[in-house]
Write a protein that binds this DNA or RNA. Sequence first.
RNA 1: UCCUCAGUAGCUCAAUGGCAGAGCGUGCGGCUGUUAACCGCAAUGUUGUUGGUUCGAGUCCAACCUGAGGAGCCA
Length: 569
Amino acid sequence: MRHGDEGRRGRRCRPERRGWLRRRRGGWLRRGRGRGRGEGIGGGGRGRRRAGRCRDGRSYCNNRHRRRLRAAGSQREADEKQGEGDVGFHIRHYTAVSLPLMDAMPPLSLFLVYSRETSTTETTMTTLIPIERIAAHVGERVTVRGWLQDSTPKGKLLFMRLRDGTGMTQAVAYRPELGDELFEQLKRLGQESSLIVSGTVKANDRAPGVPRGYEIAVEAAEVLQDAQDYPITPKDHGVEFLMDNRHLWLRSSRQWAIMRVRATVKRAIIDFLDGRGFVNIDTPIITPSAAEGTSTLFEVAYFEEKAYLAQTGQLYNEANIMALNKVYCFGPTFRAEKSKTRRHLAEFWMVEPEIAFCDLEELMRLEEEFVSAIVGRTLAERANELELLERDVTPLQNVVAPFPRISYDEAVQRVLAIREATDDPELRDELAIEWGDDFGSPHETELTKQFDRPVFVYGYPTQVKAFYMEPWPGRPEVCKSVDLLAPEGYGEIIGGSERMSDPDVLLAAIRRHELPEANYQWYIDLRRFGSVPHSGFGLGLERTVAWICGLEHIRMTSPFPRTLNRLTP
RNA sequence: UCCUCAGUAGCUCAAUGGCAGAGCGUGCGGCUGUUAACCGCAAUGUUGUUGGUUCGAGUCCAACCUGAGGAGCCA
């Protein structure tokens, strides 16, 4: 549960952190519980840590013991060749037999269990199950294949926390039933050893797990590998250490939960759009020039030419909708900006729907239904994971369409009002803004605190937005753009707009931005042959997942995040 | 690119310019329905690098390296 939690460090709250927390109050960070003195990240003081604990399966394996185990293993092999076995129970033969049972039923597996002590052979039927379905098997004999997350020996008892990728459960071994040798072997297994365990499922309120409240009374076990010296202990670790071990850190329960939420968010996105008749279409990743003309892009060698990794598929999707009406692309996107914040990755996933015959108002309706559906489905399907992440779900339960809509003009007024009301000179300084400026993250954070659900800000100044946005009728200094700002300080999760539909207006904008006109001829063509009002938006997957999970940093939402200073593992 | 901070044992962190330490982890032993168990004993260091100040530098100074947070930019 707490393996390698980032931020669960016993470090005193340093001044710069306190300062940052003060500025950021109500913003990112803040995971409700388990933060020591309640100061958020890094706030857990040494005083809270209890001294002298010791646990986890690593503790019992020295080299001598490893040699002993190896010797036992080779002895066993020798015995088997001679038709003899060990004392105690061993799984000798394991066959998973898939039977065409009811849908989603796991396959039956057949175990041959030998007992050398009694010289009898038992044939035991057990069911191979994923741990996430353990509740449906109380009282049955089951088999679980997984990894030892943690174990605690208690005399004749051994509590093993077993994870199999679908969940985590407690397996309880009892020495008199297992026999000394197998019991000792299990007791001395290192953290992350791989093994197969069979036994009877029991409901027990004391049993931890995901789902909690169930345990397996171990009757047989086979060790696939006794792992030693797993580097990520169930203790405090720093970010750098954990990121260096990201390939292993992913096994920790928080990371596991985040990846499951991420998969559900992705699924919800795809299902929502497919259900609305959108056509999923792929846009190029290698592009000839910057689509929006602003961001710093990764340059790649494309035969004899320079090319760039795509920052958006939107322009291509504007071509696609003229063929397919409603489309979306969903894939990786790349930004080479040297951003070092908890909201930025160099590589992230973005879903970009684009809709023909759609104006700004219709776009906002689509976006709010979209986001509500994503949050609603995650709440329904990933309650265990959100609980494990200690995510307070009440703010998420408010995420139901319609969302409030405020104009940029009003947003500026609101920010200025907040600025007037604050006593904090630092905040006052950060909130300085004039009409025509884009919002920075302090502005967004303070603004979203006024609402209990995501909020639309529409009608930004033309000068701070991309060149292709439709001018506001009668107000050329404003464009038909809309950002969706997530609550709790998570910032912009969607940027969208109605696109220019007039070829002359578009050409003028391209020239005003001094973009290479020739590269945009095809884009202007789209307005020359059957132009229609159309709109679209992009939603950042990682920011959305970070918000839903209540994470302090976006890097935790990606299995192998690419950040300014990290390309490995 | 700019601002702030950090780098000491495997990990997380202490150490007025004066013998480099603790907890966890690791090893050995004890105990036992545990939930980051507990009790006892033991081993563990090129203090990021280079140079400087000083009788003496983990500590002060300079440069560099690495990392973190923030700004800008953005999803």
